[in-house]
Amino acid sequence: MKFHMIAGGPKPVAPFSHAVETDGFVFVTGQMPDTPDAPGQLPDGIEAQTRAVMENLRLVLAGLDLGFENVVMARIYLTRFKQDYAAMNATYRSYFAEGRLPARTCVGVTGLAYDALIEIDLVCRRPARH
């Protein structure tokens, strides 16, 4: 098992690794909508926060030599589910190729770190080396 911390990656808000890898699967810790340059500072609105989360996930994936095409499962947590679900979906969908959407769970929660509106974690599969 490998425990990954990505240099220049998002600042952890709790004791965790950015990702843990085992048997070809990579489990990416849920990312928040802040940036490595401004921890704890969040953009306004669900579209901007969704983009920020996805960019943090892109940064972690890139540090592992992976991309969104390697995502097999996403879990999304929203604090304002009814209000933000449609707008979040439109932004989220733009990060994946047409017809290549990962399996997904999306749930409403009562709170997230930094009072964020969204958090997303991923399960990825590393391509087999031939």
Rank of each mutant, 00 (worst) to 15 (best):
V123E: 06
E69Y: 03
Q83G: 02
P102R: 02
A14V: 14
R104V: 00
E21K: 11
A90F: 00
R51V: 13
G99E: 09
E98Y: 08
E119G: 05
Q41W: 02
L66G: 09
H130Q: 09
G67H: 07
A74F: 00
R104C: 02
I76E: 00
L64C: 13
D84L: 01
E98K: 12
F3V: 14
D37E: 15
M1D: 10
L66K: 09
P15K: 09
L78Y: 01
D23Q: 14
N70D: 15
C106K: 03
Q49G: 03
E69Q: 14
I6M: 12
E55H: 10
I118G: 00
A19S: 14
R126M: 10
F25R: 14
L66C: 10
R93T: 11
T110L: 08
Y85E: 05
P102Q: 04
Q31R: 15
K82N: 03
D23K: 14
V20E: 12
T91Q: 11
A90S: 07
I6R: 08
G8F: 12
G8R: 10
R93I: 05
Q31P: 07
G24K: 10
R129I: 09
E55V: 05
E21L: 12
F81E: 01
P43G: 04
F81L: 05
G99P: 05
P43V: 04
G108D: 04
P33R: 08
L117Q: 05
D23G: 09
G40E: 11
A7H: 10
H18N: 11
A38F: 09
E21M: 12
Y95D: 05
A74I: 02
G108Y: 01
L42M: 07
A103S: 13
G8H: 10
N70F: 04
D121S: 15
E98C: 00
E98M: 06
T35C: 06
G99R: 07
G24H: 12
L57I: 14
L122C: 08
Y92V: 00
C124P: 08
Q31A: 13
I76G: 02
V53R: 03
L117G: 02
D34W: 06
R80L: 02
P36T: 10
P102S: 06
F68G: 07
I6A: 10
F16K: 12
F96L: 06
L117P: 00
F25I: 14
A86D: 07
T29V: 11
V26N: 04
P43E: 02
E55L: 14
R129K: 11
P10R: 12
P102M: 06
K82W: 00
K2R: 15
L78M: 04
A74Y: 00
A87V: 05
M1F: 13
H4G: 03
A38H: 11
R125L: 15
D121Y: 01
E47P: 01
G67Y: 07
M5H: 14
S17K: 08
G108R: 02
V53M: 04
L112Q: 08
V109N: 03
I120T: 14
Y95A: 03
M5F: 14
I6T: 13
S94Q: 13
L101K: 09
V123H: 04
E69P: 04
D23T: 09
I118D: 01
N56H: 10
V13W: 14
T50C: 12
V28E: 08
M5W: 13
L78I: 03
I118S: 00
R80N: 07
Y85M: 05
E69H: 10
G9V: 13
P39Y: 12
